[in-house]
Design a binder for these strands. Structure first.
Length: 563
RNA sequence: UGGGGGAUAGUUUAGCGGUAAAACUCCCGGCUCUGACCCGGGCAUCCUUGGUUCGAAUCCAGGUCCCCCAGCCA
């Protein structure tokens, strides 16, 4: 034992107020084993904001030697679907977390919750209200005015019990009655103005089918579900802060088997994107994107399809920290973490997004040769592959300028550059079409620079990527940009008016080195000097499709923009 | 004079009475067979006004600003 902190949580996980609270609870003996839970409602796909919560809940459980449950908060059958349950399960697992045996559903507890509702009625702290939704809203008061008691508030226990049982039996239509907690209609906290505990919903539930026609509200289900599972630290986002008194009220009035505590942290916001399930659902429903897993979506599924590694998402969650202050994280932070992870592991390849033909005039016609190319500059274990060189090649259009400005290092008339892992070439001619556009470059190569080094020690200002014409494979490459044009799309006006019309750019006629055709390597690779890309599921053996995960940092673009 | 919460660099966090730390962004420079990576350097009236103290981002009091709540959503 080196120090007194030897048994503390790994500092690699960072420290935050949640972990401090847990540590204090452990130290004080208030809890023996930490039990947390991630409680998604299956009414949509998970997004990166959920990932923050997942990493927090599962991370904390692991660090303190406890466990984390995956519990579906399926209390509203009108919005929830089995397909979402399946997608969420897949996403949490993909993120790298394991709930073991502890997969639960709030619906597993419907019978118990119902019993507890009767218990509250028996204690005289819950009643059946016959008011319509409109009447309830009207009598609830406002933020500054107290509400009024319902005319049905003082029904007898027997009457309430009878009515509640008949609600369960299906005697009443949706909205006809509701079970309410009897707390305080004049409370400054709106959640305490006799909140609804059960409502009538004649709807088929993904798991319980038509067994029920009354369903508990979030407020009545969540805390009790936590108690049933022995959750010690029920971590949620700030907007539930006002619900904590109600969370506690329920637990204090019920014979629950354990006493969980709720803690709130600030939800994740990221610039230029939206993390609201309502908005994301609309984007999908109205076809602004191609489904929940569209690579432009901030969903886990979207990020995965885009080629973002789970490790990067976990790292991102760790770096942004956990606090109680409202915040908006820079999109650049996410991109940086993604690049960092991919830079470490992604194999390097060459691909030309916007091809410009190059003919090496002094290279023999009808002949090609192979040259070795390193797969990863910092990881020799990734080995070497063979690439083909020949008389006809393609380079990136952006790597040539007919009248280059002083800061432009790449190819131009009379200039020499290095073809990565190839030869030095010099541009000796430019071929244009009738419109005056450059369609081909005539170049010469220096045979002595084979592999990329000049025996005479001369230097070139740039090394550019390329592919050999006869062996290159055509590909479609999809470039993604931010979905919205504003840092805070929801700030003003209609959010959908701020959709970025250029969020998806499809490049046809790209040329990639043949090693990439062996693809359906689902892994993300780096196209040298361009960015990180991964094959899209739309790919087939005769049609290669790649998604750009994120571009490389581009200092030249800045220089160019500033010039 | 409804209730609840929050304010530390452009951004996100650390700091828990001892003289502001890290990451991202940005700027300057170096290195380089990726204008990438990497390596140097630069960038803070700790919302504000008072108070307590030898000493305050930390404690106290008063302001200011921001966020959440009026679903039978979660």
């Amino acid at each position: 034992m080196a120090t007194g902190t030897a048994d503390a949580a790994p500092d690699s996980a960072g420290r935050d107020f949640i972990r401090d609270i847990i540590q204090a609870d452990l130290d004080a003996g208030r809890v023996q084993t930490v039990v947390t839970r991630f409680p998604p409602e299956p009414n949509g796909f998970l997004h990166i904001g959920h990932a923050k919560s997942i990493c927090l809940n599962f991370g904390v459980a692991t660090e303190f030697g406890g466990r984390c449950h995956l519990r579906f908060d399926d209390t509203n059958p009108t919005k929830e679907e089995q397909a979402f349950i399946d997608a969420i399960t897949k996403d949490v697992r993909w993120l790298g977390f394991d709930w073991g045996e502890h997969l639960y559903h709030a619906s597993d507890y419907f019978e118990q919750l119902y019993e507890w509702a009767e218990h509250l009625i028996g204690k005289g702290v819950a009643y059946v209200d016959d008011q319509s939704p409109d009447e309830m809203r009207e009598s609830r008061g406002t933020l500054t005015e107290p509400g009024r008691n319902s005319a049905f508030r003082d029904r007898t226990v027997a009457e309430n019990l009878d009515l509640f049982r008949r609600m369960r039996a299906g005697e009443f239509p949706n909205g006809a009655r509701v079970l309410r907690a009897k707390i305080d209609m004049s409370s400054g906290n709106m959640n305490l103005r006799d909140p609804a505990l059960y409502r009538i919903l004649h709807a088929t539930h993904p798991r319980t089918g038509d067994a029920w026609c009354i369903y508990p509200t979030y407020d009545f289900a969540h805390g009790q579900s936590d108690a049933i599972e022995g959750i010690t630290h029920s971590v949620c986002t700030l907007e539930f802060e006002d619900h904590r008194p109600l969370y506690d009220w329920c637990l204090e009035h019920l014979p629950v088997p354990s006493r969980p505590r709720q803690y709130e942290f600030a939800r994740l916001n990221i610039g230029y994107t939206v993390l609201s399930k309502r908005v994301l659902t609309t984007l999908v429903r109205d076809g602004h994107v191609n489904g929940w897993d569209d690579p432009r979506m901030p969903t886990i599924a979207g990020l995965r399809r885009r080629g973002v590694p789970a490790s990067a998402i976990r790292d991102f969650a760790r770096r942004i920290g956990v606090a109680r202050a409202y915040s908006v994280v820079d999109y650049a932070m996410l991109e940086h973490v993604i690049r960092e992870h991919l830079n470490r592991s992604a194999p390097r390849r060459m691909a030309v997004l916007r091809p410009l033909k190059v003919v090496i005039e002094n290279y023999q016609e009808g002949v090609t040769e192979t040259l070795p190319a390193i797969n990863h500059p910092d990881d020799a274990d990734q080995g070497v592959r063979e690439i083909t060189f020949g008389r006809a090649l393609y380079i990136e259009r952006d790597d040539f300028m007919e009248n280059p400005p002083k800061k432009f290092f790449r190819l131009g008339p009379g200039r020499e550059v290095r073809l990565r892992y190839g030869y030095f070439i010099t541009c000796v001619g430019v071929v244009k079409d009738a419109a005056g556009e450059v369609v081909e470059l005539r170049c010469t190569y220096d045979p002595a620079t084979k592999g990329g080094n000049a025996p005479d020690g001369r230097k070139v200002q740039a090394t550019i990527h390329w592919v050999e014409a006869s062996t290159a494979r055509p590909a479609e490459i999809r470039l993604y940009n931010q979905l919205f044009t504003r840092p805070d799309p929801a700030a003003e006006g209609e959010i959908f008016d701020h959709l970025n019309p250029d969020s998806l750019e499809i490049l046809a006629g790209c040329l990639v080195e043949p090693a990439l055709a062996v693809a359906n390597t689902p892994e993300t690779v780096q196209f040298e000097r361009t960015g990180y890309f991964c094959p899209d599921p739309d790919s087939s053996s005769d049609r290669l499709v790649f998604n750009r995960t994120v571009g490389l940092r581009d200092t030249w673009a800045k220089v160019k923009a500033g010039a």
